[in-house]
């Protein structure tokens, strides 16, 4: 069964007809040619397909495209400006926050969404005082980024990159 939907992807309005079974991830990659979000586990466990949906980080593999008619989607590719990287992506480069790079677009989108959440003083599992403003120390960054796996194990530098980007 098919449905015609509109997605606003990285600032561009795109209309497409999808089978209802198409995930948002597959719509972005296979239908719209946006290969920035990656398919890792395809079960919501690895975070490599993370995008910003209406500004919030989600895994695009666990939601059907048809459920997001009219939505705004930002991928890591869409975070960049005309000729410069997004500050979070820049920090990943500066700190070697990757090795093979496959998880990186998901890591970057997740970090951007996470910084927004922390900026709004959303607590995390490791926040001692639920009512106090959030201080993004390394333990907070690690906990908040636990939904993004890096099989190369670049975590130390990912944390460093996000620490810098958070300043």
């Amino acid at each position: 069964m098919e449905a015609t939907i509109t997605l606003h992807v990285d600032g561009e309005k795109r209309e497409l007809t999808v089978d209802t079974r198409t995930t948002l991830l597959d719509a972005l990659r296979d239908r719209l040619g946006n290969t920035s979000p990656k398919k890792g586990c395809d079960h919501g466990q690895c975070g490599s397909c993370t995008v910003l949906l209406e500004g919030r980080r989600v895994v695009s593999c666990l939601t059907f495209a048809v459920a997001h008619d009219g939505a705004t989607v930002t991928t890591a590719a869409g975070l960049a400006g005309e000729d410069q990287l997004h500050p979070v992506a820049r920090a990943f480069v500066d700190h070697d926050g990757f090795q093979c790079g496959y998880c990186t677009p998901g890591q970057v989108c997740s970090a951007v969404g996470m910084l927004e959440e922390a900026g709004a003083d959303w607590p995390s599992h490791v926040t001692e005082d639920l009512r106090a403003p959030v201080t993004l120390d390394d333990a907070e960054i690690r906990e908040r980024m636990s939904g993004n796996l890096c099989r190369c194990g670049a975590y130390v530098n990912i944390v460093a990159a996000i620490r810098e980007a958070s300043r």
Binding site: T50, R57, V58, G113, M114, S124, M145, S146, G147
Partner: peptide
């Protein structure tokens, strides 16, 4: 309740 929710899943999943 806050702590239980924050102990579950990941940031991306909790948003959805």
């Amino acid at each position: 309740l806050s702590q239980a929710l924050l102990a579950g899943a990941s940031g991306q999943l909790r948003n959805a």
